[in-house]
Nucleic acid binder design. Structure first.
Lengths: 158, 158
DNA sequence: TGCGAAATCACTCAAAAGTATGACGACAGA
DNA sequence: TCTGTCGTCATACTTTTGAGTGATTTCGCA
């Protein structure tokens, strides 16, 4: 991701240069303003700052791999302004929570039973149980509701 | 947030203009390069794109609130920017959920067992069960985890 | 190529959760 | 005063969860 950012930044830089050159050309052809360079610079900076911010937002968003989500209903979710969720990867590592466990935690949080989770992930209910047991252990939870709550608190799930 | 972004973008724009002006000045004093405007433009664009991306990332990151965990370690917990929670009273009425039921839903969401809830509210576990049964009915939930999830979705609990 | 982590599954037993039904007192409002 | 809602509790029964243990397979990595 770091590299991508650099790459994009470079591309943007070049684009910015070209844009300014274009603006300068236009300037010579049609109008001559005072401080035009500054103004154009400001415009360029503005545009690119905006694009940058937008890009930054976009990058962080998503990255929610995990399973196919049913195709059933398109729910109207009435959650107030869902700011993009950023998973706390560090804590995941600290707690040594595996991908599978995290996945199961997520489905738990959605209110699925062990059986349903098993069906969704194509594994047996028993498997789900062992995963969740380990999960409870790592999260220091005694119940699934507690695990969910801890998970949210720790930024592991939205 | 939208407004803030615009504001920052504007500020950046202005900064960019000033920067370009400064660069131009320097150019006249020390060196004269071909296509210097373009190059500067590119630089500015690059810098601001980077800053923008960084800012975008930063905005999405959540606030860090320090909390004391147990006696041992002092861990920082990531709380998703606690915007003041406003209960959706209207929906409460629509669903005919009573105060007591809501109360129990809240404790459920915190991961308490029926017994614990009972102890906390000084009622029997059976009572908690009947309340939660009715709650599940009203929320169209089959499990407590589902009820919690619905509750959050509907703005009944934080 | 062998080790270790991850994922898978089974089986048992106990505890918690959930369903169904009935009952009783308090209390607000018609 | 009658009615309906709310909160309370019980009993009986089913289902789901969770704990504990052990075993197998897969796979990346040293």
């Amino acid at each position: 991701m770091r590299k991508q950012i650099v790459k994009y930044a470079l591309i943007y830089g070049v684009c910015g240069g070209l844009l300014i050159a274009a603006l300068k050309l236009i300037e010579y052809r049609f109008l001559v303003l005072e401080h035009s360079i500054e103004i154009y610079g400001a415009l360029i900076a503005l545009v690119f700052a905006s694009v940058g911010i937008w890009l930054g937002l976009k990058i962080t968003r998503k990255e929610q791999v995990i399973v196919e989500r049913e195709l059933i209903v398109e729910k109207e979710v009435l959650v107030p302004s869902t700011l993009p969720f950023v998973r706390n990867e560090q804590r995941l590592q600290e707690l040594a929570i595996t991908r599978r466990e995290l996945e199961i935690l997520g489905l738990m949080a959605e209110g699925l039973s062990n059986r349903e989770i098993g069906e969704k992930l194509f594994v047996s209910e028993n498997t789900v149980k062992t995963h969740s047991s380990r999960l409870f252990d790592k999260l220091d939870a005694k119940r699934r509701t507690q695990a969910v709550q801890r998970g949210k608190e720790l930024g592991l799930i939205p």
